[in-house]
Design a protein around this nucleic acid. Structure first.
Lengths: 110, 110
DNA sequence: TTGACATATTCCTATATAGGAATATAATAC
DNA sequence: GTATTATATTCCTATATAGGAATATGTCAA
């Protein structure tokens, strides 16, 4: 069996660094393909293809205006990732607290 | 060019659903390979291979005790994912707020 | 209609899986 | 040493990319 397809879910779509860059570049703004091309300095087909994956997974929304296509982040589709990873956040922040406490002790001893 | 390797970073390692399951199964506990095998009901080689990827990326830590190998989540390696996705959380929670406000208005009108 | 602009799609290839089956390695007990 | 338990590794194959190059599609303007 092969790897889970990139279009399977947000996790797989976003594993590709370039697709994360596109989402970052979009941020809140709605951008045309060419604006993304200029902003990132990639080739146009490359941008279009990655947008295609993001669109299939629902991570971006497309709006057609004249000959342009304006893309926008659909952040809700990132929710599953956030919800999966958020519970782990306690682990490292807790261990940070522990380290913090240890460092405080060391200062006191000095 | 091919896809970003699974061992490239946490994003790619965690894109595979089964590897997320392993991390969830581990949670805070430290488990041996066989305990994970029993818990998830997979074959032993399958578990070992996925653990291998997780280990390469540093998402789990291995400790050898006798013939057993005890694995433990190394949550800090999930930090980059959390930090990347967290900023987007505002987007959907904001639109939820907006929806919330609209629903409030509708109630008042009744 | 013809051309210019904006974007998507097709064709190509090297590459890396994931899983199954079989086997290897390592540690312990007897 | 030998058997047994615990885990890792190897070999195999179908499959899905990502990127480059070339081309197709679609839309506006004159």
């Amino acid at each position: 069996m092969a790897r889970t397809p990139t279009t399977f879910d947000a996790f797989n779509a976003v594993a590709e660094p370039r697709r994360r860059q596109i989402l970052e570049a979009l941020g809140r703004q709605e951008l045309s393909v060419n604006e993304i091309v200029k902003k990132l300095g990639w080739t146009q087909p490359m941008v279009s293809k990655h947008l295609g994956v993001l669109k299939q997974v629902g991570l971006v929304k497309e709006r057609r205006v004249g000959r342009q296509r304006l893309y926008q982040v659909n952040a809700e589709r990132l929710k599953p990732i956030y919800e999966w990873v958020a519970p782990f956040e306690r682990y490292w922040s807790e261990s940070f607290d522990r380290l913090d406490r240890i460092l405080e002790e060391m200062k006191k001893e000095k």
